[in-house]
Design a protein around this nucleic acid. Sequence first.
DNA 1: GTGGTCTAGACCACT
DNA 2: GTGGTCTAGACCACA
Lengths: 131, 131, 131, 131
Amino acid sequence: MLLNLDPRSNTPIWEQVVHQIKELILKEILQPEDKLPSVRELSGTLLINPNTVSKAYQELERQGIIETLRGKGTFVSASITPKADEQKIAEMKQQFKQLVIDASYLGIDQQTLSLWLKEITEELGGNNDND
Amino acid sequence: MLLNLDPRSNTPIWEQVVHQIKELILKEILQPEDKLPSVRELSGTLLINPNTVSKAYQELERQGIIETLRGKGTFVSASITPKADEQKIAEMKQQFKQLVIDASYLGIDQQTLSLWLKEITEELGGNNDND
Amino acid sequence: MLLNLDPRSNTPIWEQVVHQIKELILKEILQPEDKLPSVRELSGTLLINPNTVSKAYQELERQGIIETLRGKGTFVSASITPKADEQKIAEMKQQFKQLVIDASYLGIDQQTLSLWLKEITEELGGNNDND
Amino acid sequence: MLLNLDPRSNTPIWEQVVHQIKELILKEILQPEDKLPSVRELSGTLLINPNTVSKAYQELERQGIIETLRGKGTFVSASITPKADEQKIAEMKQQFKQLVIDASYLGIDQQTLSLWLKEITEELGGNNDND
DNA sequence: GTGGTCTAGACCACT
DNA sequence: GTGGTCTAGACCACA
């Protein structure tokens, strides 16, 4: 499993790992019940510390996206139920607004954002039918 | 000038200040050439550390959104030219993607995001006719 | 013998086995002198590692609850004498306290706990008349 | 702030810290808005690693019991709202049952447990009126 | 000053 | 083999 990490980014490495694994699952590259690489293995591949991977895995587990089976390893959850947490949705909308504002100052208008949204949705939902 | 700051939020306070001033400008509540409150004044109003306000102003200046005239104060720039910095646009798209992914795990679909986008654009651009 | 094991739980599987066998004995579903399934048999039924069952049996034997007769198998002890180990009782009280604290933060009050205690005692002690 | 830590216990140190802080809050020794010792300070007092304290604080924050204000420190939340999470309550009842079972094998009967429950509740709810 | 992140490396319990 | 915990010590951003 290869992830794209940027150690210079402001977003912590463990969070980048979380994001990208979530993306892989959405794209169905990682499927329910699939085994994730072990903490040591992934830390070796990504050239980061095991603790950092561990933190990412723990966060993913906290979100109900993966599960760890004692002594066996870590697996993608069989059923990922979205929690409609009101508060988090409000936060997300707020983030979204800030993003739109920042975009505006980069000269990006609504149409472009709308296009991006479409592109991204297709990229994520486009599964692997035509592989 | 009243801003809505949340000290519990993960986004640093100076960044919240930056965001909200940018929003006020987009909404044309703050207009070009308008004078901003002094660092000391604003820090007093918002009950935050002057250094924090200062950092926010520096960032806004760096983005070309406000200008400091020595001895006179700080003013909204007369003309804010969007910098079409390719790299920053790519970063923004990346951010956007991560947001869509996170939204997806909260059960928020494309339609909802599309709606939000429309709402936000209207809220911001209400008087952006002559751009 | 069917036990309810949850591989996702935080309590180790061998401990879940220990708990549930203790429960079966309390409920007199397993009676003194009854033969327990062999390690291999039980591990096959429960689809878990033989080492795990073995560890559970060892723990139960350590507590004096079951006995192994070489070449014959494993049996529920004829007389289970509660050890009034002061230290263990103190530990238990400590555990109990932590549980009450955690319950409190979940909005569970003393009355509810008291009710639970009654329920559980009835469930377990239904035929404990002649102790 | 002095906590009683047992490095030999099975429960991890960070969890012991979490438990005991929760207890201090219930006893109103720590009151809403109170500042907790800094990570470094507490780690110095308890002779444990700062990371361990940090982990405890992060868990407490995740539970909504404390809040961190960037650069200022960590504080007891003003209002702690118990979340009536069905699933967690079920888990708690399960734990409670296992505890009753274990107690039974130590010769502790329902009456004793009932007494303990009363004692503990009084200890926790007894505030600091008579200090 | 504060907490958050990361590395290095160790030890442990579980399967 | 697996993940979880802990220590030691470093660096950074925030206020």
